[in-house]
Structure formats: C-alpha cells, structure tokens
Amino acid sequence: MKIQLFVPCFVDQLFPQTAFNMISILEKLDCEVVYNPQQTCCGQPAFNAGHWNESKIVAQKFLDDFDPENYIVTPSGSCTGFVRNHYHKLLSGKIPPKDLGVKNPLLRNIFEFSEFLVQKLDYTKIKASMDGVGTYHDSCGALRECGIKSAPRKLLENVEGLKIVETEDSEVCCGFGGTFAIKYEPISTAMTEQKVHNAVEKGADYIISTDLSCLMQMDGYIKKHNYKIKTIHIVDVLSRGLNPKYSSNSGYCVS
C-alpha cells in the first residue's frame, strides 16, 4: 500500500522524530511511504486567523504537492479536519463540499494517523510496549472535526504495559487554538492548567494525543511548573519497542 506522508508545518519544525517514527510504524505494517520534500503546510493557520487569501494560496500548494488518488496520512487530526471540512470553502470549484455527496478523491484519501491504522491496516501487528499510566486527550481537531474517538483508544489498549485512564475532561480543549494561545494567553493557559492538573490527579504519567499542537501547549505548562507528567504523541507511543530504521532510540518523547 502506497502512502503519502504529510508532515504538518509545526511537526516538521518542532517534532521531526515523530514523523520518522510514523514512517517506521507504517513500514512495519508493509506500507510504502513516500514523502514529497516540497510540501510545507495545509494553510490552516492563516485560515483560522481570518486571512483567507494567504491561506488559499498555501492550500493550493498543498493540492499541487499531493496526489489525491493515493492515501495521504498525517499525524494530526487538526490538519486532516481542516482539509476535509474547510478546503471546499477556500478552493471553491476545486473541492466540492462534503455534504453534497460529491465524491472527491482528496477528501476520501486523507487520513489522520490513528484512524488510518485502525480503518485500513492490521494495527494489532504493532507490538509496542511502554510502562506506565497514560491518559488520552481528545484533540478538538480529531474528535470534533474528524469524529475520531475510538481509534486511538483501540491502539493504546494494544500497547503492552500501558494502563489507560480516562479523565472527565478528556474531550475538553487544551487551550491551544493557534493564534488564540498568543492573543489570549491568560485564558489559554488557564485551560491548559486544568487539563494538566486533572491528568495528574488521575495518576497519569503520560498525556497522549493525536495532535502535537495540543501536546506542545500542555508540555509548555508542564515544563514551566516542573511537573513529572510527560506528553507524548500516539505515534511515539506506538513506535516504542519497535526496532525501526529511522529511530535512534526506542521512541521519542516530547518532554
């Protein structure tokens, strides 16, 4: 199975190891992973800030960089949701709105990593192991834009040694929200603070999610306040215990 890897801009810049780990996992599951080194970003940051003209040009580049007839897999529910739910507004004529029932290969073929694994591959073949207690944070992009809820939990259940606990606010936003995190830092931080506290209270060692933007936000708070809890991307959890050709160690932790 051929898979085009989409590495979102901030993953590219801040968390390269997660992208490498993703290649390892997909290759372990017998996928052929291709990466177009021209790719940059889906265009979401400018779109969310209201600058649609700038966003549109970058979204057009995204269309040029990927082949819609093949799977595109990305370690981000947020970027996946953006392409699925908002591209038709930006690129009218090129992408039909999804609710019209018009078939469009791009909308059919772009997947967030965890949903792709559960829907399209035999994920039980991944024999990852990680000791400790983890809690899964539903990123708003994955949960509400893509409807992803059970897939990452299934994947995590399958990790040896990892105990998963649910917090009551697993579906509550971490407070990042792109420019919101900068424009309204006090509100953004107050939201993060509660997420972190609730995870700590549940006895979790790790906060796990599909989206590194959420994890970066929570990790910033954790580091500043010297908490022991760590944030880790689901890809980096699943790559633990693998013997991948791209990983220099047994996995990569954001913290």
Partner: peptide, 8 residues
Amino acid sequence: HASSLCGA
C-alpha cells in the same frame, strides 16, 4: 478571536 475554536 477569543476562542480556541474547539467546536464544543
């Protein structure tokens, strides 16, 4: 702008 766009 005072929203994280969480969609709740």
